[in-house]
Each structure stands twice: as structure tokens, then as C-alpha cells.
Design a protein around this nucleic acid. Structure first.
Lengths: 297, 297
DNA sequence: CTCGCTCATAAGCCCAGGTTATGCCCTCAT
DNA sequence: ATGAGGGCATAACCTGGGCTTATGAGCGAG
């Protein structure tokens, strides 16, 4: 149950494994990470002990992954990628007000999209310091007007007066079920009435996605379960507890792995436009322009 | 650059943060994780120091996340989810031969799909021990024939004689570019000739996805870059180095965040069927049946 | 044969994260 | 009003994991 951390090697060990896999030698991996070769040797060994599987085939001419090692490395890579997104976001969150680019963003965007953009921005312009301020749409507008932010991102239907904007994406709410659910075999889209009259697995009242749904249905969403995190909603849906309504951004992976299936819905406005905004006439330049470029293509 | 592990809290700390967020109190989180309250207090504090952001608002009646803390917690949840998938896979990899369910799977499936299935299976039947053996399609067939595995998963066009099978999904190769690439604006699908004559970012020769592409194009794929990991291919494509060909399973998140755009292709067979297989007449029962149910819906 | 690369082992240091013991603050019930 | 109890913080101490340096042993190329 608890103690994931005791069964999964820590991030340092996973990075180390990736380096060994990429470079083909303990020594080279050690040099790249700025540690010594015995440190690598011991760490990989203790990782193998922890997992109970041989990961690396040592030879006097270098090291190669075993089959199991290749698999473990691929899984590890996903953890490290999530950690990189975390790092990009956290760094912006800490960013002091004197950063080159000050961004204010609403929660959905800050949660799902911004880390990716920041990683891409860092790849193109490694020296750009970004600071992030997260809040609701009203907060974002305030910060921009007060000159405390250079660029904002908001979700919603309207752009407040005094701002220019560019669409950067859509937050589509999708209705999903486990592949075994009867709805997964439907050929005809769900109607608004069916959706409103069927109990759904939902986030708690007051959450962003819940508000979108309530508005779209006219305040009628009926909960089968009310859960306080997107992950909890997802896992309930995956395990077949019933249909759930979630942001498309939250279920990308589950959909492509078919752990969840998206059910078409007709006649309900589940789209929410995601926009970059800035004060009229203050179209962002420099790093802000670069970031904007990443979001629009 | 290096030292992600020094900037990102370790898994234990992230789990702790999630527990505090969920339970609303340091003490309750401590009890749930089987440690003491001062340990929680100190760990959260050092996490806040490390990130340079206040995450939790302490009060004499409990603790709530700050805005920044909510964001950090969401990002952390993604790392922990990836770690759970890692754990599910690693546990099966270590699994002794006396497990209740012995699975043999080819690489693509073991890498992308199996951890999710195993997590779902564990949610439904927590007591099922699964062992995993990864290899190529031939290895999978051998293990099944030798009675060393109860259920196999393979990718490919044909089912070897002596086996029954069920389709569990498709591994579609997709051509992707950064949203800024000219191809992203095309209205007409790419033809096979265009695809074969344009240099692409690819995995190295010998890799599974490369083989699929070579076969589909008649052995002609022309590399713009040859990289040794899917991640490397992805990040090159994201940063605009050119079009890449990748398994759809590898780019789910990038597509929904529009860091990458999928380019339609016409007249090329980029589908590979993913199948569960078992010896004719030995249709899996018990836990194998359960797992099969998860994959087919 | 010796150099240069590989990895393994051993002995010692240090700090992060755990423990127990305690104190302060606030709220609620007697 | 006054304890009781739950909330978090602080201090002193212990342990172990991960690092270092120093060394050895296997293999291949010049």
C-alpha cells in the first residue's frame, strides 16, 4: 500500500540509469553527472537489489541494458519526464518579480499546459527566466493591469475589455467510461438530457471542471460520486464505477491506451477556449513573443 | 542542467504532500504514512525551502494548500502516477514463476500498456500476483508453448498457428511535427511518396517503430536524425527540428497539449495490431480472464 | 607488455530524514 | 474559566544511504 518511495528508486537513481543506458558505460555516466564511478556502480547495484531484477549487463568493454533493464528504463523515463515538467513549473513559481518574463495564468492552463511550454521555451532560449503567478481569471486581469505581469493566460468565454487575446487551445470536457461500459458501444452521441439525467463521477462542487459542466447543462449535473482530485475521478472511471466528466487534457494518456473511452456528446457546449491575453497595445515582445509562438504554432 | 534530483523533491516528499493535501493535517498524514508528525513538519518545510515557495498554510485547526501549493501538488501527482506505473511493472518483472498469472509480452505492449492494465487489475483484484516476461514475438510464443506463461501479448500482422487471439488495441505510427511546421497547416494528407522522400526524425535502425516504418514504405525511410530513445525523438520534434514518426502511444500527451500535431497520411499501412494470444484451447481463466477483460472492455 | 578502458571492493565522512520529548496556540466542552 | 485535545514547531539525538578516495582485477589494442 503505502511506501511507493520504498519500492521505486529515487529520481537520482533513475537519472543515473538513463545516463548509463544512453552512454553505455558507468564511467561516462559518472563523468556526465559529476560524480565518481564507484558511486554509479554502487547505486546501480542497490537499484537492482531493490527491484530484484538485473538491469545492466556489465562487461570489460562497457555496459548494456538487459531486456528487463530496457523496460525499466523506459518506465523510468516517464517518471523523469514528469519530474522535468514539475521542475520547469516550480522554477517559474519561485521566479522573482525581476524575471525577464512574468506570466499570470489560470489554474487549468498552469496545471496542464504551462510546464510543457516552459520546457520548450527553455530548450529554445535557455537563458530566459520566467516567473509564474497562478490564480483565477480575475486575478490574471488584475496583474496585467497593474503591470505586474507581461502575459496572461485565461480560460473562459469572454475576453475582458481592455485586453487583446490569441486563442492558444481548447479545454474540452469529455465524457469518458471504461471500455466495458455500455456507453462505449453507442453509435449515436449522447444528448444533453441523457447526460443531465445520468449520475456521473465528478470533481467536487466549486472546481473548475464542475463549473463548466454545470453551466453547460444549466446547473443540473448529478453526481454519482464526488471526488476531490482529478486522479481519483480518473481511477474510479477506469475501474468501471461509471461515466465521468473530465478535461480532455487530463485523460490524454488514458484514451490512447484505451483504459478510457470518450463518449461523443451532442448539443452541449463543453468547449472552453484557452486564451493568451495582454493589455491592448502591449503585445508582448521578446521572451513573451517567443512563448506565444510556442503556444500557437 | 544536470541535477534534476536536487531541484525536485523525492518521491517520499511528494507522496507526503499529496497526503497532507488530501487529509488536511500534518498529523493525519503522518499517521497514514506510519511516521511521526515532526517528520512530516520537517519534510514539508524543507520541501518549501527547496522550491522557494510556501506550499501549505498552517493553522491551529489544520493545514490547507496555498494556490502555489495546489499547483505543485497537481504536478507532483503526475510524477507519483508515473511512479505507480513503474512500480506495477517492476513488481511484475520481479514476479516469481509461481505467480498466479504469468504474462509474456512484446516490448511495445510491455512498455506502454501493461503497467496501466496491471494497475487496473490490482485495483480490482488486489491479491493477484502477476509475473511479466518481456521479449519479442517469437519469445512470447515459445514461453506459451513451453507452458511457462499463461497469456501472451504480441504486436504484428499475423498470429502464429496453434494460437487463439483477441485484438486488444492498435499501435498506429503517426507522423508528427511541431505546430509551427508547414505540414501542420496542410489540408490534404501526405502521400506515401512524400513521406518516403522527406527526411524524418527516427529511432535507430533495428528499433520496433523503425521496422514498422521501413516495412510500410518498402524499406525506404530516410533519416534526418537517428536517435536512440523515443524521448529524444519527441523533444527534437517538439523543438521544431523536423517531422518525426512515432508510435501514437508515445505522443498522447504531446498531442492533446498541442506541443505536437499529427499529420494525416494516406495510402500507407502504419497500423500494427496488438493482440492477446494463448494456446488454442487454453483460453485463460481466473486472473488471466480478468486481465483480458480489462484490455478489451 | 603495458597502457587504457572497463567494473568491483573497501574504508571513512557527512547529511537528510527519522525518532522522542517538549512547548505553544487555539478551540471546544465542561 | 479552565482544562483537554488537536494542531504545528523546535531541539537533541541516531542511523543509514550515498558520496568520496584508494585500490585491485579483467580484457583488448597498440
Amino acid at each position: 500500500m503505502a511506501g511507493l518511495a520504498h519500492r521505486v528508486p529515487d529520481l537520482g537513481a533513475l537519472e543515473l540509469l538513463l545516463a548509463v543506458a544512453r552512454l553505455g558505460s558507468f564511467g561516462r555516466a559518472a563523468r556526465e553527472l559529476g560524480i565518481t564511478q564507484p558511486a554509479v556502480s554502487s547505486r546501480i547495484r542497490s537499484m537492482e537489489r531493490q527491484l530484484g531484477v538485473a538491469l545492466v549487463e556489465r562487461s570489460p568493454r562497457g555496459s548494456r541494458l538487459t531486456d528487463a533493464g530496457a523496460l525499466v528504463t523506459d518506465w523510468a523515463r516517464r517518471i523523469v519526464e514528469a519530474a522535468e515538467a514539475f521542475d520547469a513549473g516550480a522554477q517559474a513559481l519561485r521566479g522573482r518579480r525581476d524575471s525577464r518574463l512574468r506570466v499570470a495564468a489560470s489554474m487549468t492552463i498552469a496545471e496542464y499546459l504551462l510546464p510543457g511550454w516552459l520546457m520548450a521555451l527553455r530548450a529554445e532560449r535557455p537563458d530566459t527566466a520566467v516567473s509564474l503567478l497562478a490564480g483565477n481569471s480575475a486575478t490574471v486581469a488584475e496583474r496585467l493591469l497593474a503591470g505586474e505581469a507581461d502575459l496572461g493566460f485565461v480560460e473562459g468565454l469572454t475576453v475582458p475589455p481592455g485586453f487583446d487575446s490569441a486563442v492558444v487551445g481548447h479545454d474540452r470536457l469529455v465524457v469518458v467510461t471504461a471500455p466495458g461500459h455500455p456507453w462505449a458501444r453507442r453509435r449515436t452521441p449522447l444528448s444533453a438530457e441523457e447526460l443531465a439525467s445520468t449520475p456521473l463521477i465528478l470533481r467536487e462542487e466549486g472546481s473548475g471542471t464542475r463549473q463548466v459542466l454545470d453551466t453547460a447543462l444549466g446547473g443540473l449535473a448529478r453526481p454519482l460520486l464526488e471526488l476531490s482530485s482529478t486522479t481519483a475521478v480518473k481511477s474510479s472511471a477506469v475501474s468501471g464505477a461509471g461515466p465521468a466528466a473530465l478535461s480532455e487534457l487530463a485523460v490524454g494518456e488514458e484514451l490512447s491506451a484505451r483504459r478510457l473511452v470518450s463518449i461523443p456528446v451532442a448539443g452541449v457546449r463543453l468547449d472552453r477556449t484557452l486564451r493568451a491575453v495582454w493589455r491592448t497595445g502591449h503585445r508582448p515582445t521578446g521572451p513573451g513573443r517567443d512563448l506565444l509562438g510556442l503556444t500557437r504554432g
